[in-house]
């Protein structure tokens, strides 16, 4: 009996001290962690919509999108976070698009686990720059080996067709959802 009480009290005491310590650390860390998350997202938004000064979340279930405004609070477009399957895992990206959903402003890859040196080239400027003021009418097309003939085309990275296509598909998918939403709006 004495043994049992001993065991119970030791475990209880350890657990209590541990819980109290963690609670106080969490109290300190939680606001900082939230701040980091907000900072990360706003940095990304202003990166893909350089002329934006503020943003507001759009209530959409299917994807995370933000409406962005200039200094006079006029809506100038959207910033969209979306993800999809790449060659080896999920690719998560953010891109900016104008108010009429016609031209992309810029794109950033947030998370990817593509093959280093091959699929991971989607994070390089060479590939991302192709999305600068890229037309999305009617959709973005991926081309290979040929040179661009229309302004809605993106050239695939040599040897990394699957990753290049995945990025294009994710963007197209996000735009499709966004278009549906903006139609409902009107």
């Amino acid at each position: 009996m004495k043994k049992t009480i001993h065991i119970i009290s030791v475990l209880t005491l350890t657990a209590t001290i541990s819980a109290l310590t963690l609670a106080s650390v969490n109290n300190w860390a939680k606001p900082l962690i939230e701040e980091n998350a907000i900072k990360a997202i706003s940095e990304a938004i202003f990166q893909v919509q350089p002329s934006a000064k503020s943003y507001e979340k759009i209530p959409l279930d299917e994807l995370k999108a933000f409406e962005v405004f200039d200094e006079n609070k006029n809506s100038i477009g959207y910033a969209v976070v979306h993800q999809g399957n790449g060659f080896q895992g999920t690719i998560k990206l953010i891109f900016g698009i104008d108010k009429n959903l016609e031209r992309i402003t810029s794109i950033e890859i947030l998370e990817q686990v593509e093959t280093p040196g091959l699929g991971s080239l989607i994070t390089e400027e060479n590939y991302k720059n192709q999305f600068r003021s890229l037309s999305v009418n009617p959709v973005i097309n991926l081309i290979k080996g040929k040179s661009k003939t229309a302004d809605n085309q993106v050239k695939a990275i040599t040897g990394a067709t699957i990753s290049s296509r995945a990025v294009v598909n994710i963007v197209n998918d996000a735009i499709r959802i966004l278009r549906k939403y903006s139609k409902e709006e009107k």
Partner: peptide, 27 residues
């Protein structure tokens, strides 16, 4: 610490410190 519950106690202590490290790094 009684020997019957030593592993449980150790893991509790270890996981407390691991959680602290995790939270500090995230912050």
């Amino acid at each position: 610490v009684p020997s019957q519950v030593r592993i449980a106690t150790y893991i509790l202590i270890i996981s407390t410190f691991v959680t602290i490290v995790d939270l500090v790094m995230k912050a």
